[in-house]
Design a protein around this nucleic acid. Structure first.
Lengths: 205, 205
DNA sequence: TCAAAACTTGAACGCAGATTCAAAGCCTCG
DNA sequence: CGAGGCTTTGAATCTGCGTTCAAGTTTTGA
């Protein structure tokens, strides 16, 4: 995935196609999306898409990278903005679950997961997102412990990894229309685990 | 999904196609599988597949149903066979994670998840599996509590749902080649949570 | 201002895969 | 054994999508 040098405007154009592809993928599914769909979404002709992305796999990769980054950035920024360790933890939990089935970024992120099976490039993206999310939770836990607000029941990394896995599992069900699991229930489960693991009094308001 | 009446041999033939499709999907991916792949896998011609499954969506549905049932059945049987509540819990955990990337049933099950987005029939299958898994864990927890071996830190249903979500999230990462998460580590996290929630002394041997 | 480069388009082409179907094979039961 | 129904096949057809490309349009920069 070595990037050829591109001008600023070329890069900007590409980003428009990334957004168009994102919407098209959401609409038609990762493997059913046609070049025409992406073109239509971007308001151009199919040839134009190919001109900027001669390799569709590269566009797929960029979409994956983009949703992973956006997902993480929102979380990191929200956590950063929160004051206390407790509210940081609440912020991480709140932003870790897909807001609903209208959550484009989360939906596409889950769609992309499947590519990791067969492409090591996509697997790296997934691993990298996982690592960043674990690191984010870890830092929050460290802060809470350092300030004496949290009493951790397990090693930091274990709690962080469990939180990430838990929200991924819950998110998967929320996005897949599991009617036995509401968003509020998912958040409650996540909060309860966090509460037990940190011994602090956060709420799933 | 009303089934037309079929003879025993017709049903048996269909099951061969389900197995062939399962292998083909594993090989080529849910949306990239061609009729020819399924036919080849079954050792017949494409026309034969269409003869038994005029609607490919029906075959997809049957594959989904089959993997969900196999996955659950193995768990239920293993848990059933275990003696104490502790070993039942260990059995549930052990069978809840994909054994590896060679785990056909688990891999295809995760592939199928994505269909729930757009098909309510598939969403029902997913929900049904979730419900059964939650019920399975719930029953184990009830047994442990009734026999005084478990001291539950949360309502039964919450623990059960958390365990299911946790293993789904962990499984997703294992199947997606997340190099930051080993199978043994996943099992450890699951075990730790179970231990914490039940207050009992199981090990992730 | 103008020439070259970058970009876009839509029509034309080629191909892969779904689908159809007539012919042939093969059960099975009277 | 043989007639009728069930199953399989491979060839023919259809369809839709990717890809190419010559011809136009826009942008750039000198």
């Amino acid at each position: 995935m070595v990037d050829v040098a591109r001008t600023r405007t070329q890069q900007a154009r590409r980003e428009q196609f990334i957004d168009a592809a994102l919407r098209a993928i959401r609409e038609r599914g990762r493997d059913n999306v046609r070049i025409r769909d992406i073109a239509t979404e971007a308001g151009v002709s199919p040839g134009s898409v190919l001109y900027h992305y001669p390799e569709l796999t590269e566009l797929m990769f960029d979409v994956h990278r983009t949703v992973a980054d956006r997902f993480y950035r929102l979380r990191a920024d929200t956590v950063e903005a929160a004051g206390s360790a407790e509210s940081k933890l609440e912020a991480a939990i709140e932003t870790g679950l897909p807001s609903g089935r209208d959550d484009e970024v989360a939906c596409v992120l889950y769609e992309m997961h499947g590519l990791a099976d067969r492409s090591s490039a996509h697997a790296s993206l997934m691993t990298s997102l996982y690592d960043r999310e674990v690191a984010l939770y870890s830092s929050v836990l460290e802060v809470g412990r350092a300030t004496g607000r949290f009493t951790l029941s397990q090693p930091v990394r274990e709690i962080a990894e469990s939180l990430v896995a838990l929200e991924d599992g819950l998110g998967l069900h929320l996005i897949s229309n599991n009617t036995s699991l509401e968003h509020s229930a998912a958040k409650h489960l996540l909060t309860e685990y966090a509460r037990h693991a940190t011994g602090c009094a956060i709420t799933s308001s």
